[in-house]
Structures are given as C-alpha cells and as structure tokens.
C-alpha cells in the first residue's frame, strides 16, 4: 500500500475569476522533512502558475474558494488581507 503526503498551494488572484492572474503565492509541502527549508519569503518573483485554472490543469485540486468581500457603509475604502485567496491541494506518493 502506498503512502501519500499533502502539499498545499495558496494562490491569491487579482479578482474572483479563477482565470485571473496570480498576485501572491505560498507552498507548504509535507514531503520536505522537518528542519529543512520550505518555500521562503522573497525567494521568487514569478508565481508558479499564472492562475488557479492553470494550477488545476497541472493536477492541483481546489479545496477552498474565498468568500466574496462585504463592503460596509462607512468602511468602503478600508483594506486588509489579500481577498481572493485559493487553497489548493495535491497528494504526493512517497513510497
């Protein structure tokens, strides 16, 4: 029986269209042993995929879609975290 491990890819897109361009990204990879480096802040300037749709075409499964922002009266111009965050998963066989 094979053993699998999970990789989580987080892509932030320009807007809620899954084909819009990636503006931020992070990879958390459980196949990398503890103590070894994961993706580092600032280690790349080009996203691994241009869009979520491109990542799906390469075998990534979307497991979370962002909830649409709610614009409250009086706070329309307030901003915080990146709003269009997609969580994708891939299972990797390690043996």
């Amino acid at each position: 029986m094979s053993t699998t491990r999970q990789q989580i890819l987080i892509l932030h897109l320009h807007d809620p269209d899954l084909e819009s361009r990636t503006v931020a990204w992070a990879l958390y990879d459980s196949t990398i042993p503890k103590g070894q480096l994961q993706m580092n802040t600032g280690d790349s300037n080009e996203p691994p995929y241009e869009s979520v749709l491109d990542a799906m075409r390469d075998g990534w499964n979307v497991i979370q879609l962002p909830v649409m922002p709610i614009f409250r009266t009086g706070f329309e111009h307030e901003q915080g975290h990146l709003p269009y965050e997609y969580v994708l998963e891939r299972k990797v066989t390690i043996q």
Binding site: I10, H12, T22, V23, A24, W25, A26, L27, M39, N40, T41, G42, D43, S44, N45, P47, H81, L82
Partner: peptide, 10 residues
C-alpha cells in the same frame, strides 16, 4: 500576514 510567502512587486 505570515501565511504569505511571495507577493508580486516585493
């Protein structure tokens, strides 16, 4: 914001 690793324009 610690979840973020790379952002275009950094």
């Amino acid at each position: 914001i610690a979840r973020y690793k790379n952002i275009i324009g950094q």
